[in-house]
Design a binder for these strands. Structure first.
Length: 570
RNA sequence: CGGGGUGUGGCGCAGUCUGGUUAGCGCGCCUCGUUCGGGACGAGGAGGACGAAGGUUCGAAUCCUUUCACCCCGACCA
């Protein structure tokens, strides 16, 4: 391709609203253009990369036995009502009516549609298993789109769904997808990690996320320094915490007058004990379907923090929000003195698993100005759950290694869905005994457009993009230093044609621009290699520049083709 | 949704508080010339009626009202 014929509007100006390198460079280098909040146009370069990523995904999936389909983007709302997600999915679902007043949604994901499709055409266990996917634009009316392609409202996603006769086969396919996804991200040249995840609104159990490691990632990951354990903070577990702090003196359980002592810190000072031996009782307002609200308590060690997603799951709520002091008082709770024992009528409380055997603890008495000391938590007879946020320095449950935080960009997520959707939508098949059973399902997603951002987040320098080999829009760029120099142009044209004939994806910068201008564009766009045809031509040589590291080497003109062949791996 | 902010040529901004010439600057764009290995220089030129609607006024980018869009900070997700 000739640069002079390609629409690549590069720019020096940094858009004011772009903060992430991927956002800035993709805009500046002319890959994408913003059209509205969370909406982007893909220009020729962006489209080339998008198609490359898409092709790799498709290739690996097809090799793994998946089949591509394409479902209609506009989905009848009734399907979403049947699965119960019409209300639950919330405002993110873009809803609208056609001229006849029929309700539709713009698909943000396609479990319903896919189940419907399979339900209509699969009757027998003999037709299973099946793994169907599509690579298609999705629309989610995100509350706050940001970071360019990272979190748009319209985005390209690969969504796949598998159907099985039993759980065992579903788990087999889950593993198959885990391996396939790994191959995809490896081919793309990404440094990623597979972590355990919370299943969120999609539902199901046993989900894993593929995280591209980058400081700008939106997710906090907990990883082990010794083994390969990794988990999203929302799902991370640890060895039960221990403390070196001195244990408080044991005595009889008693109510203790503690006027004005309302925070963990004050309590710690008051009793001269470590927060490890205190119970922190956190109140949240849990929101349920149909606008139902309930105040719930979560009790954890004073040295821990509540993990909101875990807490939300523990009480099966749609969402947790901070309650006001008034709301707490209205159900009989006393802010500053809440505890898991002697609860007001009707207040639900979940205790963290790690507190089950704790003794000699201090907790609120649910009475103004009083705490209880020397509490033996094993007498608690309510609910337990995993509630705490794993901290850096905690110990790995697998190997005892030190856990630390890192940041990641979620580019893939695989779920073991089970029968949640097949049951809700009445999607069944006949097993070998002639018995009707709902499909066991798995669901698998890859954020294709987000991958472009993730690749750049992980591969850039202060000059611009550095595309990985598999994702680069072109393998090599030919830069003519001075197109007024006939000799240079002649050599360049010849090289360009030769490479093209060999099937190399080559970009030929034949623009009437100065050398520095072209170099800057090359660095901004991030093509892996450039051949500079310029002043050294008089000595019979050209220069090869590697974008990563910007190392240059002088190469004899008649050796450049062979060298390129070697470097770009033809 | 709550809090904060911004809308002025293609892009980035100034002007708005303290209404008053033809609305200004940088980048980009077009033409000519010089230059030609790190976003060059000179000369000339095209392009906006100030997010939208309404109002106040002799007069509004500037004041008032309404509205829309976009962005930043918090809860969702590939």
């Amino acid at each position: 391709m000739r640069f002079s014929r390609l629409l690549i509007p590069t720019s020096k100006e940094v858009p004011a609203d772009a903060v992430l390198p991927s956002h800035i460079y993709l805009l500046r280098a002319g890959f994408i253009r913003s059209v509205g909040s969370g909406l982007y146009n893909f220009l020729p370069l962006g489209k080339i990369v998008l198609d490359k990523v898409r092709a790799i995904v498709k290739e690996e999936l097809d090799k793994a036995g998946c089949q591509e389909v394409e479902l209609s983007f506009v989905t009848p709302a009734s399907l979403w009502r049947d699965s119960g997600r019409f209300d639950k999915y919330g405002k993110e679902l873009l809803r609208f009516e056609d001229r006849k007043g029929n309700e539709f949604v713009l698909g943000p994901t396609h479990e319903e549609m896919m189940v419907e499709l399979v339900k209509q055409s699969v009757r027998s266990y003999k037709q299973l298993p099946l793994n169907l996917y599509q690579i298609k634009t999705k629309f989610r009316d995100e509350i706050r789109p940001r970071f360019g392609l990272m979190r748009g409202r319209e985005f390209l996603m690969k969504d796949g769904y598998s159907f099985h006769r039993d759980q065992e086969d579903m788990k087999r396919e889950f593993l198959n997808m885990q391996e396939t996804y790994s191959r995809i991200f490896e081919r793309l040249g990404l440094d990623f990690r597979i972590v355990e995840a919370d299943s969120g609104a999609i539902g199901g159990s046993g989900s894993k996320e593929f995280m591209v490691l980058a400081d700008s990632g939106e997710d906090t990951l907990v990883v082990c320094e010794e083994c390969d354990y990794g988990a999203n903070i929302e799902a991370a577990v640890r060895m039960p915490a221990k403390s070196d702090a001195q244990e408080p003196e044991r005595g009889l359980e008693a109510r203790f007058h503690t006027p004005g002592v309302e925070t963990m810190e004050e309590l710690s000072d008051f009793f001269h004990i470590d927060p490890f031996f205190m119970v922190k009782t956190v109140a949240r307002k849990a929101l349920y379907d149909g606008g139902e609200e309930k105040i719930v308590l979560f009790a954890i060690r004073g040295s821990d923090e509540l993990q909101d997603t875990k807490a939300c799951n523990a009480v099966d709520a749609n969402e947790l929000v901070e309650p006001s002091a008034d709301e707490l008082e209205s159900v009989g709770l006393v802010p500053g003195y809440m505890g898991p024992f002697e609860l007001p009528e009707g207040v639900r409380c979940v205790l963290d698993n790690e507190l089950a055997q704790a003794s000699g603890m201090v907790c609120g008495a649910n009475m103004k100005d009083y705490h209880i000391v020397n509490v033996d938590m094993s007498r608690y007879d309510g609910e337990f759950g995993d509630l705490v946020a794993v901290k850096e320095g905690d110990r790995c449950r697998r190997c005892g290694g030190r856990l630390r935080y890192t940041r990641g960009i979620e580019v893939g997520h695989i779920f073991q869905l089970g029968t949640r959707y097949s049951e809700a939508l009445g999607a069944v098949f006949l097993d070998e005994n002639g018995k009707s059973r709902p499909f066991e399902m798995g669901t698998y997603g890859i954020g294709i457009s987000r991958l472009l951002a993730a690749i750049i987040e992980q591969n850039h320098d202060d000059k611009g993009c550095i595309w990985t080999k598999a994702s680069a829009p072109f393998a090599v760029e030919i830069i003519v230093s001075n197109i007024g120099d006939e000799k240079q142009m002649q050599v360049a044209e010849k090289l360009y044609e030769e490479l093209r004939d060999m099937g190399v994806e080559v970009l030929f910068d034949d623009r009437k621009e100065r050398f520095g201008f072209k170099m800057n564009d090359f660095e901004l766009i991030g093509i892996p290699y450039a051949v500079i045809i310029g002043k050294k031509l008089s000595e019979g040589s050209v220069e090869l520049v590697k974008r990563r590291g910007l190392e240059r080497e002088s190469v004899a003109l008649d050796e450049i083709v062979a060298l390129l062949k070697e470097r770009i791996g033809l």
